[in-house]
């Protein structure tokens, strides 16, 4: 709100924005919750197959999966009101810094907190599936994050608005028009607060979501650190076998 609009007009604007962002989220969320309900967990012999993969092969597989998910996040971004009006430098800055964070937020939709598994490569996988990556601490932190996000029991509309506000972070380095991003982020956050109120959510939920932002940044920093360490040992694997989009975003 610019302060001049009537409460009714502001509510209508929040509802409208929430509706557009929810629609964009659902159109680009890669998996529907219903289709995942049918999926089973990996059997022990399948888990062992992943564990016996060479480290490079498992890293490559995960880079491919992350890249697939990122393409959906780019589509999500393009459908967020106002995103395509930003200059292209700022669109790229926001996606470079925020696409992995959005994937981590979206992960709570494909995570089963009952048995600590996440949907990966056709079935539900526990942390042990990712052992051959050689980054148990990163995997454990990602699973912990997904579990804590699940405990908030967010509705799709809430996940959609939170994802959009994460993507529209105005404090990213190298933005040309910080103010315009800030305005978009504020609008999205107001719509999120409005939706939380409308859904009769606990008063502290918005603040809880805010604290998730620093956790997301730490996870992404840890991912970059692990990628650098991996690249130092296997530069050719990264150069020749990793998806170009993954390299553009994380290994430039």
């Amino acid at each position: 709100s610019n302060g001049d609009a009537s409460p009714t007009a502001t509510t209508a604007a929040h509802d409208h924005l929430a509706q557009i962002i929810s629609k964009s989220h659902l159109e680009t969320c890669q998996y529907l919750r219903e289709e995942l309900q049918e999926m089973s967990c990996f059997l022990q012999e399948e888990v062992e197959k992943f564990q016996n993969k060479p480290q490079e092969a498992m890293w490559q597989l995960c880079a491919v999966k992350i890249t697939d998910a990122i393409q959906y996040v780019v589509e999500f971004a393009k459908r967020i009101d106002g995103f395509m009006n930003l200059c292209q430098n700022d669109q790229i800055v926001l996606l470079k810094a925020g696409s992995l964070e959005v994937i981590l937020v979206r992960m709570c939709r494909v995570f089963d907190p009952q048995n600590n598994t996440v949907y990966f490569d056709g079935k539900f996988a526990g942390p042990d599936v990712f052992k051959s990556l050689g980054c148990d601490d990163l995997i454990a932190s990602v699973f912990d994050f997904a579990k804590s996000m699940c405990s908030l029991h967010l509705e799709e509309e809430e996940i959609a608005l939170f994802s959009a506000s994460v993507l529209l972070s105005a404090d990213r380095s190298w933005l040309r028009d910080k103010l315009q991003v800030e305005r978009l982020q504020q609008k999205t956050e107001s719509a999120l607060q409005h939706v939380l109120q409308k859904n009769h959510r606990d008063d502290g939920l918005f603040e809880k979501l805010r604290t998730k932002v620093s956790a997301l940044r730490s996870l992404c920093a840890l991912h970059s650190q692990k990628l650098s360490a991996f690249r130092a040992v296997y530069p050719d694997t990264v150069r020749t076998l990793f998806p170009p989009l993954y390299k553009e975003l994380f290994a430039a």
């Binding site: 393409q71 959906y72 780019v74 589509e75 292209q88 790229i92 989009l245 553009e248 430039a252």
Partner: peptide, 20 residues
């Protein structure tokens, strides 16, 4: 632009996720 060629392309394209 050259450094972010693919991201640039994805932003320009009118592809839907189903086409990816």
């Amino acid at each position: 632009k050259e450094k972010h060629k693919i991201l640039h392309q994805l932003l320009q394209n009118s592809t839907s996720p189903g086409d990816l």
